[in-house]
Amino acid sequence: MKPAPFEYATPTTLDEAIALLATPGARVIAGGQSLLQDLRWRRTSASVLVDLARIDELRGVHDDGARVRIGARVRHVDLERGAVGGPLGRLLAATAGWIAHPPVRSRGTMVGSLCFAHPSSEWCGLAAGLDAAVELVSVRGRREVPVAEFLRDSFATTAAADELATAVLVPTLPDGTRVGVVESRRTHASYAHVAAVAARVPDGGSRLGLAGAAPTGTRAHAAEAALARGEDPGAAAAEHDADPREHPHASIPYTRHVAGVLVRRALQEAA
């Protein structure tokens, strides 16, 4: 299918981009791996597509010691290849490796995935689990929104139509943190059914993120607490953290069950 007509703009500065986004119906395109599909299916439309490809301010990653700032043009493959160092970088690289297949990873971006807010997005699960934040900029100013607040529902965020997500800010993980990510999916290139992301912080407990187990990526608070109490984190994740929707190939009981299994396996991988 072919998209309905739209204008196409390639601003070179952030200011130009956010000015364009004040146009009613404007949409941002970065890697285009999800948006183009929805445009072709005519599920969404755009008066103007604002392409981030030429805005240098949105490139690269920056580590200030407490958080790593990942710009809106950073692709899955950049993170897969080690754009970020340390334990967080290892977790980002391992997670990126699960996303779709190499052609998608060579174009799609982490910030774009957060904005698309697919319930099975590995990045949404990781960002929620690590309490990351999204930086939003518009002509009205700049703000930072915690991911738990940013991800409103499946395919829905709390960003306003004129706001550009310029970066995701992910807290760094201390040296010695061990990480794991596991996923269930039906074919090598399909979306995740459920993905679990684990980071065991020395002396600091564990951080757990889930994708596909609920309408949005979630931090598995109950599983983390169970682990701290010496109880089965899998059972807690299945019962309390998972909030799945019925799917033709995955019933609610099955998805809850898988969330529990994968939380245990991610923790084992991080052991």
Binding site: S184, R186, G234, A235, H249, A250, P253, H257, V258, V261
Partner: peptide
């Protein structure tokens, strides 16, 4: 034979709620 089908053939949903896995 999706994973769910095999899990159910193994009695998966019956064990659900009483200690998973």
């Amino acid at each position: 034979l999706t994973p769910q089908v095999v899990w159910e053939a193994l009695g998966g949903e019956r064990s659900d709620g009483e200690g998973r896995g």
